[in-house]
């Protein structure tokens, strides 16, 4: 499986964490990331996202990269630290899957899938709107990190 982890784009600060929308700057910058994904010919069968508004809006921006017949899915688990239940959910999917979530949970998931330890999350620095691509079977320590795309790098991709 190809699993693309996407950190939500820049959001506006607010008291209600679930309802913080993307800022104009966040939308603009993430649009460039989506363009970079298009240039890299990346598309998805599933776009999964956390229920928080900023993740939902980031996932919405990825909709043009959904393949025909592809679907989006909201998962409560993506708003929290990764647990075995999330791995089981991801395992059940096939094809190219994008997951939109938050830090530090996304880096913890990345570390868990690549090194086998959730505690190594701090070693990976996922910027807002950043993308990490993993290949291989979805299991702790079984995946390979094949691409780390920062928003800055995405801007430079022509």
């Amino acid at each position: 499986m190809t699993l693309t982890l996407v950190r939500h784009a820049i959001a506006i600060d607010g008291a209600d964490d679930d309802r913080r929308p993307l800022s104009d700057k966040g939308r603009r910058r993430f649009a460039r990331v989506v363009r970079a994904l298009a240039r890299l010919e990346m598309s998805f069968d599933v776009v999964a996202h956390s229920p928080k508004l900023r993740a939902l809006q980031t996932a919405e921006a990825l909709v043009p990269r959904l393949r025909a017949g592809g679907s989006t899915t909201v998962l409560d688990q993506l708003a929290d630290a990764p647990k075995t239940g999330l791995i089981k959910t991801l395992e059940a999917w096939e094809g190219d899957v994008a997951v939109v979530g938050h830090e530090p949970h996304l880096s913890a998931l990345l570390a868990w899938l690549v090194t086998g330890s959730r505690g190594d999350g701090a070693s990976f620095d996922l910027k807002k709107g950043g993308v990490a691509v993993l290949e291989g079977p979805v299991a702790p320590g079984a995946m390979t990190l094949t691409l780390l795309l920062t928003p800055r790098l995405a801007r430079r991709l022509r």
Binding site: D18, K52, T73
Partner: peptide, 13 residues
């Protein structure tokens, strides 16, 4: 978790 996520997401809109 999809149902729980849906309810929570609707409240965030």
């Amino acid at each position: 978790p999809r149902y729980r996520g849906l309810v929570r997401a609707l409240r965030s809109l």
